[in-house]
């Protein structure tokens, strides 16, 4: 049976990506798909993403989220992507569990700010500019803030894992990573 009877090229999916409280390592890993980037360009076009510098996300099919949620801006970005994307994927350890930034969860944010912004003379000058995103009391994994559809583990997930997961999603398969792509040592 011909699944593509009109012979027209299938519609490209719209893809958004963002990094919240992450290190961009997962985005670098996405670039590690190397020459398959050309293939990806044939399957997808990018909406809001560091690759396009689009600031506001429009309706899209899949959004890849790197990093956990550490401040008010992260919440707004995450909500914007959730409102626009049909499928939200948590990519990497920080998005799934909070990761390295969540090491601060043992400490009180007030104490951290006090310590960081105390100068040698003992005076504290914590910036209070409304332009600055306000820190949440803790780092939250993204599935504690919005509904998440899929979780792609790894720190970072390898380029191969991202490619497999993403193409599964684009081609309508339930994404599966075999043992090798989930094996980190």
């Amino acid at each position: 049976m011909n699944a593509n009877p009109n012979g027209k090229p299938p519609l490209k999916v719209r893809l958004a990506t963002t990094s919240l409280a992450g290190c961009f390592g997962c985005h670098m890993s996405l670039l590690d798909i190397d020459e398959r980037l050309f293939e990806l360009a044939g399957l997808a076009e990018f909406d809001r993403s560091p690759f396009t510098d689009i600031k506001q996300c429009g309706p899209c099919d899949i959004a890849l989220i790197e990093g956990g949620v550490c401040n008010s801006e992260n919440v707004h970005v995450l909500r914007e992507l959730r409102a626009n994307a049909k499928i939200l994927v948590a990519v990497g350890a920080c998005a799934i569990n909070g990761g390295v930034p969540a090491l601060r969860n043992r400490l009180k944010i007030g104490d951290i700010l006090d310590k960081v912004y105390r100068d040698d003379s003992g005076e504290v000058h914590i910036p209070d500019d409304p332009e600055l995103p306000a820190s949440l009391d803790k780092i939250y994994p993204i599935n504690e803030i919005v509904r998440i559809d899929y979780f792609l583990p790894g720190c970072p997930p390898s380029g191969d894992a991202i490619w497999k997961y993403l193409t599964d999603l684009i081609l309508g398969r339930v994404p599966r990573l075999d043992h090798q792509l989930l094996h980190y040592d």
Binding site: I126, D128, P130, A134, L136
Partner: peptide, 11 residues
């Protein structure tokens, strides 16, 4: 969850 930061920054 933002309250501690509001307190610390007086925002």
């Amino acid at each position: 969850a933002l309250e501690p930061t509001r307190l610390a920054t007086h925002r």
